[in-house]
Amino acid sequence: MRRPLTALLAVLMILLFTVAAYAGLPQDTVQANVNKVLDVLRDPKLKPESAKELKKKKLRAIYEQMFDDVELGKRTLGKNWNSLGVPQRQEFVILFRQVLEKAYIDKILAYTNEKIVYERETMVSGTQAEIQTKVVMAAKEIPITYKVILKDGSWKVYDVVVENVSLVLNYRTQFSDILAKNKPEQLLEILRKKVKGQ
């Protein structure tokens, strides 16, 4: 009788008091996801050109787990988020993710065993953290910082800062420039065209 009670109590304790600890450390989460990406990229079975689509599919699945699409979209639009209708917001999130995939997938697929160093984890608040890493290459090092937020019990990436330039802020500047002169529908149209490769 006593044992199940203790167990239940322990579970309750974990759930109630240590949500952050339950979610694991932010850096461990990021590192685990990055390692999964590296596993896919290094997988000899996926080396041939014909496996490229399969590779992309696997990477998409990891992206799902690793990033918080909606948070990323919200922060990228900033206060303009509210001027979009809910269906527009949903479409925006999907389109923006496709824009990012298109822009960066070849860079990621071109990875050739560069070393990734995890330098520092900084807690910004109880639910936000920054993981500083760097990619070490022959001629240079590229610092990459992942900004993560605790949502539904796991740490999700909502911004990536490469060489001190925040992805979210960079796109936000572009989007607010466009939205200052155009309607949300036109922004979506621009993104649709970008995704289609025009």
Binding site: R60, K74, G78, V86, I94, R192
Partner: peptide
């Protein structure tokens, strides 16, 4: 115009996560 979203995304957005898409206060 809208390219077919990846199935997982469709499932996610159709899965009633609509709360995520409500108005926001500027995060920062």
């Amino acid at each position: 115009h809208t390219p077919a979203p990846a199935p997982a995304v469709a499932a996610k957005t159709a899965g009633g996560n609509l709360d995520d898409y409500q108005d926001i206060e500027d995060p920062d």
